[in-house]
Each structure stands twice: as structure tokens, then as C-alpha cells.
Amino acid sequence: MDYVFYILAIWIVGSGLLAILQRNLVHCAVALIAFFAGIAGIFFSLHAEFLGAIQVVVYVGAIAVLILFAIMLTRHVTGEEEVSPFSRHAIWGWIASAAVLCVLLYSLDKQMFAISAEPSQITMLDIGNAMMQRYAVPFEVISLLLTAALVGAVVIALEEPRERK
């Protein structure tokens, strides 16, 4: 089953790179959808089916569409960007992220993790119970946050009232 992981990894890295490198914003968004789907695949391969489903619903379904809408609302529909991410001004950005990657990989290389004997398995029922009991308060807080974000987003994006100077 190893090859599943490698295929997914290549898929994710490839679509992720495409998503940030293309000049056409709409193409970027399409690559991003592929990227999110790949992450969902990773969750499934880790036997976190519920998370995988959520990933599909929230990211592939909602956030990707939101981003597409934002692109269309703020650009022409074709969404060409004038500046390429390879231009001179971006060089320091590349250097910085490459440096961070080196640091991360180096530390991963040095660190050994104890591997538990058997991988953990939980079911939807466990998640539901946990949400209603142990994580009830964070659950409520997060729902409050989502409500606030919803209201906030509407308020922010609303057309400002015509000048009342």
C-alpha cells in the first residue's frame, strides 16, 4: 500500500506548486482544488475517514468556491496577473521558504519518533461522543466563532452606505 502514499504525495506537491506558480488565478484555483482533494486522500490513507470527508466538504466544496468567487469579484474573469512569481522582487521569498524547508527537514532527520505498536482506530461514534462530552466547550466556542465569522464576513463585504459626508 506504500505506492498510494507516494502517488498522493507527488499529486499534492505537484498540484500545490502549480497552485502557487501559475500566473492565471483561475488556473491556480483549479490546481488548489486538486491539492485539497489530495490532502483528503492523505486523511483517508491515515484512516481518518471523517476528517477526509470534512476536508472534501469544507475545502474542496466551500473554500475553493469562495476563492474562485473572490477571484472573479476582484479581477477580470480570466484573472491574469501582471507579475510572475519568478520576478526579481520575489527572490527573497523563495530564499526564505527554502531556508525554512531546509531547517524543517534537517530537524526531522535528527528526530526519531517512537512508533506505537498498533495504529489507533476511532469511529464516527467516538468522534460524536467526544464532541458532545469532552470537547463540548471547544465545540460550542468554535460554533460561536463560525457564527461571528459569518456575521462579520457579511458586514465587512456589505456595500458601504453611500457617502453621508
Binding site: W92, G93, I95, A96, S97, A99, V100, C102, V103
Partner: peptide, 9 residues
């Protein structure tokens, strides 16, 4: 952000 990440490194 660039400076922050370089600083982390």
C-alpha cells in the same frame, strides 16, 4: 513575513 521566517531560520 519574509524577515520573520528568515529570523526563525
Amino acid at each position: 513575513l519574509k524577515i520573520t521566517s528568515l529570523a526563525i531560520v
